[in-house]
Design a protein around this nucleic acid. Sequence first.
DNA 1: ATATCTGTTATACTATAAATATAACACATA
DNA 2: TATGTGTTATATTTATAGTATAACAGATAT
Lengths: 130, 130
Amino acid sequence: MYITLDLESEEPIYTQLKYQIIAGIAKKELSPGEALPSVRSLAADLSINLHTVNKAYQQLKQEGFILIHRQKGVVVNPDGVPKANEAYWSELESKLHPLIAEAVCRDVQEKDFLQLCSRIFANFNMKGDK
Amino acid sequence: MYITLDLESEEPIYTQLKYQIIAGIAKKELSPGEALPSVRSLAADLSINLHTVNKAYQQLKQEGFILIHRQKGVVVNPDGVPKANEAYWSELESKLHPLIAEAVCRDVQEKDFLQLCSRIFANFNMKGDK
DNA sequence: ATATCTGTTATACTATAAATATAACACATA
DNA sequence: TATGTGTTATATTTATAGTATAACAGATAT
């Protein structure tokens, strides 16, 4: 499970970190119950501050991706990530809305947009990976 | 063409404004060549600062949605919005990636994800609207 | 017992972005 | 000549991101 950060990006570091862990779970590189590095060791590995890692972990916990035991450490949620609910779908829609508005303006065909989505889905679902 | 802002949102005002104009173009509520309000009048209408409107306009100009004539004013790009190019597709993919990663984690089926996209597309393409 | 490792909490500081408030400028036009 | 364009320039306030230290409580291995 490699993590790469772009310190030049406008995307906050803790957000990049959050997403990469989510992507790791999606790709099954991280399994339910699997331990994640401590805030200190991960911060040291990435040469960033402990609090930046902690912020990412706190939000991942808040959203149900991980569990944090005060003394044991951090693990991927053993019960799996909570299934999509109404609030999730509503949020997803509001995130897709601007993307699709711009696509329509740029004359992107629905078919091509959906194809791109399918390709990204396929990328996450291929199980025979490294 | 109504514009509504949520001043409580974490989404910056200029970003909300940008998107609503893009959505207006996508829905054909704004036509190529159509004039947009001046920075001062729109700012006054929305009870926000002139510079906030200007920031949104500058970015919309940068991305090809509108043209700004120094003394005439602001108009929707008469030649239409520039078509999708390689850079656009690459950016779109990087915006979809995190959304689909989370969807996969939450056990969202590809079919359901694509259906939501289709529904949003349909919303922009219905021409008989108000 | 003692040292070490967890996450957690608390301050303090710097840097940057968002938003506002004024003011002035150059240019066109009524 | 006055007014309306966008533009530029400062300055200020507020919030967020990120870093730097330090300390605490609880578990664990030595």
